[in-house]
């Protein structure tokens, strides 16, 4: 034991052996569910958007600095890989946006019934698909 908290991890198997309790969730045992999948998506998109936040600052700094540095950012963002990344960030943004709104509804104490949770989960996925498609379409029209 390295920490007093470890004492709380002592458990017993059915045949009586004492074991160190495993931490939940056990992803290899859990059946995949829409609830857990959407939860980890929220995290993954949040981390992806962090990269986007640094790109946003790069773009702002370049615009404030010189024509050359702005041309560099533009070239990167207008390349096929840049466009692909922007489309990915758009999808991540709308997902995190919609799932975040769902979290705020939960924080207000509503929508916890299992049926409602599943319905709002599907709604988040549909809304993300529609908003992403509209944004990408509008983006290519504006370009």
């Amino acid at each position: 034991m390295t920490d007093v908290r470890e004492a709380l991890f002592i458990g017993r198997t059915t045949d009586g052996r004492t074991v160190r309790r495993p931490l939940s969730p056990h992803l290899q045992i859990y059946k995949p569910q829409i609830t857990s999948a959407l939860s980890i998506f929220h995290r993954i998109t949040g981390v992806a958007l962090s990269v986007g936040a640094f790109i946003l600052v790069w773009w702002l700094v370049a615009a404030a600095s010189s024509d050359e540095s702005f041309a560099t950012v533009s070239a990167v963002l207008h390349s096929w890989i840049g466009k692909l990344a922007l489309i990915g960030w758009t999808a991540a943004l709308w997902y995190h946006f919609c799932a975040g709104l769902r979290h705020l509804v939960w924080d207000s104490g509503h929508g916890f019934e299992l049926e409602t949770v599943h319905a709002t989960g599907r709604l988040v996925l549909i809304a993300t698909a529609i908003l992403t498609a509209l944004t990408v379409l509008a983006g290519f029209i504006a370009l």
Partner: peptide, 16 residues
Amino acid sequence: LFALGGILAVIKLTLA
């Protein structure tokens, strides 16, 4: 640091 860089860039843009 990136937040400060972004803030500085916005201030530069609006002052320029």
